[in-house]
């Protein structure tokens, strides 16, 4: 009999045990679980790159891929923001402090942050798509002088869907940082842009030759954002987006995330627009 510890990183499982340290209710349908691996050795060895994901596993229920939404400098405490839309995520959303689940990872290729050094970062996200990019923002802010201007654009459908408001407000106070928010359906309190997040691309000053764009959100939104950024003069190898499929194994074996020449879980989930544009937005792929 072999145990997780004896087999090294649990690429194929079994997972590590993870304990819920805290739970934040972000919006009506969204919560963040802050997790800690209970095995001290696994916890000490665990590292992740912004844009990677973990497989979270609820025994007797199932597993789901969730991106890591916390600061990569603090890998002992892993934040996963979860939208309760499916069988497993609805159970995850009921967990509280002290509850235990399985966790394996991290999986996939993250954001090209080393390549982005010395460049402006243009972050365009929609809805829960902000979660996989927050780790990249934390990474860049920890190395603020390595990057140029930081442009952060986040859009939501309903104003009530906006979460991490305090975080956006804090970022907006930082020098050389532009934060703009959009809601397609505003409420009485909404004071930011009304419309699509992609509208904001025409309103912020961009340096196309010196920018790397990080996009995450629903595919139609990413498609529109990438096309707009190309039109604004950013070359397609400087535009990166994070795709989502029904990842199960995390290592390109189970086949659910096959897309053209790629297994998204292993070769992505982050891709440059130059590699993936021909398949994004094609119905059935």
């Amino acid at each position: 009999m072999s145990t997780a510890a004896a087999m090294g990183p649990p690429w194929m499982g079994p997972p590590w045990e993870a304990e819920v340290l805290a739970r934040d209710q972000e919006t009506r349908g969204l919560c963040t679980l802050h997790l800690r691996l209970t095995d001290a050795n696994a916890r000490a060895a665990y590292r992740f790159l912004p844009g990677q994901f973990n497989m979270l596993y609820v025994p007797a229920v199932g597993g789901v891929p969730i991106s890591i939404a916390s600061d990569p400098a603090q890998p002992q405490r892993l934040a996963h923001t979860i939208s309760a839309v499916g069988r497993v995520t609805r159970v995850l959303a009921t967990l509280g402090t002290g509850d235990r689940i399985g966790l394996r990872g991290p999986y996939g290729r993250g954001w090209p942050l080393e390549k982005a050094e010395g460049q402006d970062l243009v972050v365009v996200t929609g809805g829960l798509g902000c979660a996989p990019v927050v780790a990249a923002i934390d990474y860049a802010l920890a190395r603020r002088t390595d990057f140029g201007q930081l442009v952060i654009l986040q859009g939501v459908k309903h104003a009530a869907d906006m979460f991490w408001r305090a975080r956006y407000d804090a970022w907006a106070e930082l020098p050389n940082t532009e934060v703009r928010l959009a809601a397609d359906q505003p409420d009485h309190h909404w004071q930011d842009h009304v419309g699509l997040v992609t509208d904001l691309l025409d309103e912020v000053p961009l340096r196309p030759q010196a920018s790397i764009a990080l996009i995450c959100g629903p595919e139609p939104m990413m498609l529109a954002a990438a096309k707009r950024l190309v039109a604004l003069g950013i070359s397609d190898d400087r535009i990166w987006l994070s795709l989502e499929r029904g990842f199960q194994c995390g290592v390109g074996h189970c086949g659910h995330c096959q897309l053209g020449p790629y297994f998204l879980c292993r070769d992505g989930p982050v891709f440059p627009w130059s590699e993936i544009s021909w398949l994004v937005g094609r119905k059935g792929f």
Partner: peptide
Amino acid sequence: AGRLAFTREL
């Protein structure tokens, strides 16, 4: 106590 133990038997 709610603690989980995972094992794999090859």
